[in-house]
Write a protein that binds this DNA or RNA. Structure first.
Length: 352
DNA sequence: CAGCCGTGGAA
DNA sequence: TTTCCAAGGCT
C-alpha cells in the first residue's frame, strides 16, 4: 500500500495549491506579468533570467531597469558596442554572462529575425542558456509545459519528498518530481510560483512552514532545514596579489583583461596574476605602497596590495591599454575588486 | 563530473 | 568575523 501522501492523485492537488497561493501572493517584479495575464515580452524574460542566474532579485532590479531602458529590444542590444555592455554589467558579477548575453542577442537578431525560439531545445542551443534558463523562458514567455528546476525548486521538492540523496546527485530524481507536478495549463505561473515559494516561505534557513500552502503534504516538514542534503564545502584558499595605479595628467592607466577567465573582458588596473610570485611592475619608477584591499571570489579570497606611481606626463607605454580620466572613473565599468583598489589608490595618492 | 566564475546581504 | 548562498552555465 503506497503512502497516500505520495499517491498520483495528490499531484494535481499540490499543483493547484501552489498556483492558488501564487494567485494571492505573487511578487510584483519589473520583468514579471501578474498571474493569469498575458506573458511578458520574451526579450525581457530572457534578460531577467540571465541576470538572475546565481544573483539576488534585489541586485538585479537596477540593472534590469537600466538595460531595458537603454536597449529596449534584442535588436538594440545586438547592435550595442561590446565595451558599453560590459561596462553596464560591471558590479553584477559572473561576467561571462555579459559576453554570452551579447553573443545570444546577435544570434537572435541576425539568425532568427529578432524572435527567440519558443521551445526548450531551440533556447538551449543559444549561448548562456542552460537547462534551467531554457525551461524558464519556454514556460514563462511561451507557455510551454517545461519543468523548471532552479535552486529554489530543488529545495522545495527535496523537502516535499524528504529526499535523502545529496546534491548534485539528487538532481535527476528531483527533476522527475518537478516534471510530475508541472501542469499543462499555466506552466509559467507554476514555475514562478515554485520559485516564489522557495524565496519567501521555503527558505534555506528558518522556513515559514506555518504559511506554506503544501505543508500538509510535506514529508520533510519536521526537519525542513536538513533538506536538501549537500556535500560539504572546501575552505577557500587565501591568495595575495598586487595591482598598479599609474597616474599622469589626471588620468589612470587601465587595461582590458583577457576574454576568458576571472573578470574576463572587463577593464582593470594592471596587476600580477595572484598565483605566487609578485611579478614586476609595468614601469620603473618611485612606487608608493598605497594600501591593501580584500575581496572574496567564488573559490578563493584575495588580498590585493596597490602600488602607485605619479608621472609628469603620459609615457609611450608599450603595453596595450588606455588612459582614463580619473574624475570619470565610474564610467569605466570596473568590476568591484578594482573599484575597491581604485578607491584605496586615490586615498593613498592624496597622502603622497 | 568537478572546478571555475562575482557580488553583497543576512544571520 | 565567518559562513552561507541567490532564478546556473561552461569546460
Amino acid at each position: 500500500m503506497p503512502d497516500p501522501v505520495m499517491s498520483v492523485e495528490m499531484l494535481p492537488h499540490i499543483t493547484n495549491k501552489i498556483l492558488a497561493h501564487y494567485d494571492a501572493n505573487a511578487r510584483l517584479l519589473p520583468w514579471r506579468s501578474p498571474p493569469g495575464t498575458p506573458a511578458p515580452d520574451p526579450y525581457r524574460v530572457w534578460l531577467s533570467e540571465i541576470m538572475l542566474q546565481q544573483t539576488t532579485v534585489a541586485a538585479v532590479k537596477a540593472y534590469f531597469d537600466y538595460f531595458t531602458q537603454r536597449w529596449p529590444t534584442v535588436a538594440a542590444l545586438a547592435a550595442a558596442e561590446d565595451a558599453d555592455v560590459m561596462a553596464a554589467w560591471a558590479g553584477l558579477g559572473y561576467y561571462a554572462r555579459a559576453r554570452n548575453l551579447l553573443a545570444c542577442a546577435r544570434v537572435v537578431a541576425q539568425d532568427f529575425g529578432g524572435h527567440f525560439p519558443s521551445d526548450e531545445a531551440g533556447l538551449r542551443a543559444l549561448p548562456g542558456i542552460g537547462p534551467y534558463t531554457a525551461a524558464a523562458i519556454a514556460a514563462i514567455a511561451f507557455g510551454r509545459a517545461a519543468p523548471v528546476m532552479d535552486g529554489n525548486v530543488e529545495r522545495v521538492i527535496a523537502r516535499l519528498y524528504a529526499i535523502a540523496t545529496p546534491l548534485p546527485a539528487a538532481k535527476p530524481q528531483l527533476y522527475q518530481h518537478v516534471a510530475a507536478l508541472t501542469p499543462q495549463h499555466r506552466p509559467g505561473d507554476f514555475a514562478q510560483a515554485m520559485m516564489d515559494l522557495g524565496a519567501t516561505i521555503c527558505t534555506p534557513r528558518a522556513p515559514l512552514c506555518g504559511l506554506c500552502p503544501i505543508a500538509d503534504a510535506c514529508q520533510g516538514r519536521l526537519a525542513a532545514e536538513s533538506f536538501p542534503v549537500k556535500a560539504p564545502k572546501l575552505a577557500k584558499p587565501h591568495r595575495q596579489g598586487r595591482a598598479w595605479w599609474i597616474e599622469a595628467d589626471g588620468a589612470v592607466f587601465l587595461i582590458r583583461r583577457p576574454e576568458k577567465g576571472l573578470l574576463g573582458g572587463m577593464r582593470a588596473l594592471p596587476s600580477c596574476d595572484w598565483q605566487g610570485a609578485e611579478g614586476a611592475p609595468p614601469l620603473e619608477g618611485a612606487w608608493h605602497r598605497l594600501g591593501d584591499v580584500d575581496h572574496v571570489f567564488t573559490h578563493f579570497r584575495l588580498t590585493l596590495g596597490v602600488d602607485g606611481l605619479r608621472l609628469r606626463d603620459r609615457p609611450q607605454m608599450a603595453l596595450l591599454g588606455e588612459w582614463w580620466p580619473i574624475d570619470r572613473l565610474a564610467e569605466a565599468g570596473l568590476p568591484t575588486l578594482f573599484n575597491k583598489a581604485a578607491k584605496a589608490a586615490q586615498k593613498g595618492m592624496r597622502m603622497t
